[in-house]
């Protein structure tokens, strides 16, 4: 059952924002905390979300007009780039990290594996500008969209005038991304009393709560912290994670704890996509942890799991798959005009 939460001041600011359709409330699933996203200057509207969806699937955002957000964030695979350890941008340029799955972004405190981006509105600037992703800039995107009568019309519906600005492009993208809520997995239905775990899943859930829940905290299955989970550093990528942003040696090799929702679908795993299967992930936690000064204290003691327990744990993780989310028609590419 969904409770309702209204972003603070949403109606009061509707007039100021110039939005032309009624504000939409962001549903907060029962038992979830209040969202982190709270920008009263960007109330969700049907037309704003529709514009954001169109932009999400728009190749004009890339320098050579070949790559859209959806190239690395496919709706059917929990908005990640399935089968690609490292995502590729224009001209087949290979990035340095695995594209994160996108869901429940309203609850996220920061964005990117290293938390470089502090607000969902501003996140799109990073891939648009990255030389190994879209290799373009928001100024260029704005100019391209201004040439489109269709876009001018969509901006008018969304923001009250046909003026196309960087601010509006970013806000519309954020609006669509805020709607990507995954909260109807079997786990959720079980929690709501509408379904039950099998004996194997139940055992897996108990193992999860004992060994994993501290970082992959329910109900969002992440604590949104940065942790070093003992991965041996890749000597070619030499990615220092959060320390590259904070400059703090204590953050060396720390990456944002990802959600486990839809984990069945969002392979490969880890910030560099080094593991293709869940089995490899669990083997890492039992046998592959590399000690270092910044290793999470929770991983200092070896996690003990037998093969039967790993199977049970995996069975539980599969209950986090949300097919309503994966196959939501509202998340697919908009119908061509």
């Amino acid at each position: 059952m969904l409770s309702k939460f209204i972003l603070s001041g949403i109606t009061a600011f509707l007039f100021l924002s110039g939005a032309t359709s009624d504000p939409i409330t962001l549903p907060v699933p029962a038992g979830w905390p209040a969202p982190q996203y709270d920008n009263p200057r960007n109330p969700l509207t049907e037309s704003g979300i529709a514009l954001g969806r169109r932009l999400f699937y728009e190749p004009l955002l890339s320098r050579d007009s070949t790559v859209s957000c959806s190239n690395c964030h496919l709706s059917f695979t929990a908005f990640t780039h399935v089968d690609h350890a490292l995502s590729h941008g224009i001209n087949d340029r290979i990035g340095t990290r695995n594209s994160p799955a996108l869901m429940n972004l309203a609850w996220s405190r920061s964005f990117m594996w290293d938390g470089a981006v502090n607000h969902l509105d501003m996140q799109a600037l990073a891939p648009i500008s990255s030389p190994v992703e879209m290799d373009f800039n928001i100024q260029g995107v704005t100019e391209r969209l201004k040439a489109s009568e269709d876009y001018r019309s969509m901006f008018e519906k969304a923001f009250g005038s046909g003026e196309i600005t960087g601010e509006r492009i970013l806000k519309a993208l954020a609006q669509f991304e805020l709607t990507l809520v995954s909260a109807n997995s079997r786990y959720d239905r079980i929690k709501a009393g509408k379904d039950t775990f099998t004996a194997q899943e139940k055992n897996g859930y108990e193992l999860f709560q004992k060994h994993c829940n501290s970082c992959h905290t329910e109900p969002l299955f992440t604590n949104y912290q940065f942790e070093n989970n003992g991965l041996k550093p890749d000597t070619i990528l030499n990615d220092r994670g959060r320390a590259g942003i904070s400059g703090n040696p204590a953050d060396d090799l720390k990456f944002k704890v990802p959600t486990l929702r839809n984990i069945e679908i969002s392979h490969p795993y880890m910030h560099d996509g080094r593991f293709k299967r869940l089995k490899e992930v669990l083997n890492h936690y039992t046998d592959g942890i590399e000690d270092s000064p910044t290793l999470s204290p929770l991983l200092k003691d070896k996690i003990q799991l037998g093969s039967r327990e790993k199977t049970d744990l995996t069975a539980f993780l599969l209950t986090l798959t949300d097919r309503d989310f994966l196959f939501n028609p509202d998340f697919r590419p908009p119908a061509p005009k």
């Binding site: 960007n42 607000h119 960087g166």
Partner: peptide, 12 residues
Amino acid sequence: VSGAYGGDLDPV
């Protein structure tokens, strides 16, 4: 830390 702004603060 407050998201997208327009005018002189527009990222363009």
